[in-house]
């Protein structure tokens, strides 16, 4: 997973692409990012445009809105990451559509931020996304916790291959609950008497397992439906 996602070249400004169908927001986000020294290499108003411009723009991070006409952010995330696995996706959404956020994250988005977040939070999130660090807001932690529990209920008995259904370790659950309740990772590290880095790893792990499971499920679905023969 980390092998094909090399960190951006140090010393050069981060290359960012902004995808939002709302011109006001697209410009505001692009302006905020470029004012702080990031290189906004492209903007796009919808998914098709984004995919057309992506190869030439070669961004490190794509900041995208979930609700867009023609192609929603979840599908766009999937397309971007299958064609350009090195690009990282940060979802910026004005909506409370929690299931869309979850789908985008399962499709490989590294983080998600609500549009009401401040400019500093946005900059911080873009930088952390570029570093490959999950942008784990309390909202996302709650969603991920809920998703693991939904998976556990959907498959109560571990099948012949227990790895089929991803599960949280006790520590991971503990960490996720802390994040969901608004504690910062340093606070969590203090409480659990582990290092800040370990907290980050736990959080990242919960996301990786979910994304892996999602890919396996999609592949299995494709094989079952005979879709793999088309390629």
């Amino acid at each position: 997973m980390t092998a094909d996602r090399t960190a951006p070249v140090p010393g050069r400004p981060l290359r960012v692409m902004v995808v939002d169908d709302h011109p006001m927001w697209r410009d505001a986000v692009a302006r905020d990012l470029s004012e702080t020294g990031l290189d906004v290499v492209a903007t796009a108003g919808d998914g098709d445009e984004a995919l057309r411009r992506l190869p030439a723009a070669r961004p490190d991070v794509v900041v995208l809105d979930l609700q867009m006409p023609h192609m929603d952010g979840v599908r766009l995330t999937r397309y971007i990451l299958s064609a350009h696995p090195r690009v990282r996706v940060l979802v910026l959404t004005a909506s409370g559509e929690q299931s869309d956020v979850l789908e985008a994250v399962k499709a490989g988005a590294t983080g998600y931020l609500v549009k009401s977040a401040s400019r500093e939070e946005l900059l911080d999130a873009v930088r952390r996304t570029a570093d490959g660090e999950a942008v784990f807001t309390p909202g996302l932690a709650g969603l991920v916790l809920g998703e693991y529990r939904r998976l556990a209920v959907a498959a109560p008995d571990p099948g012949p291959n227990p790895r089929d259904t991803p599960k949280l370790t006790e520590r991971e659950t503990e960490v996720l609950r802390f994040v969901a309740k608004g504690l910062g990772s340093r606070r969590i590290a203090q409480r659990l008497q582990i290092s800040h880095r370990t907290v980050q790893n736990h959080v990242q792990n919960t996301l990786n397992k979910l994304q892996l499971h999602n890919r396996v499920e999609l592949t299995r679905y494709a094989i079952e439906q005979g879709l793999d023969t088309e390629t």
Partner: peptide, 18 residues
Amino acid sequence: IHDSVLQVLAYVQRRGAE
């Protein structure tokens, strides 16, 4: 509402804070 009002309100909130 999502396409219009919510976007503008969120924008006003953000710019206001800045």
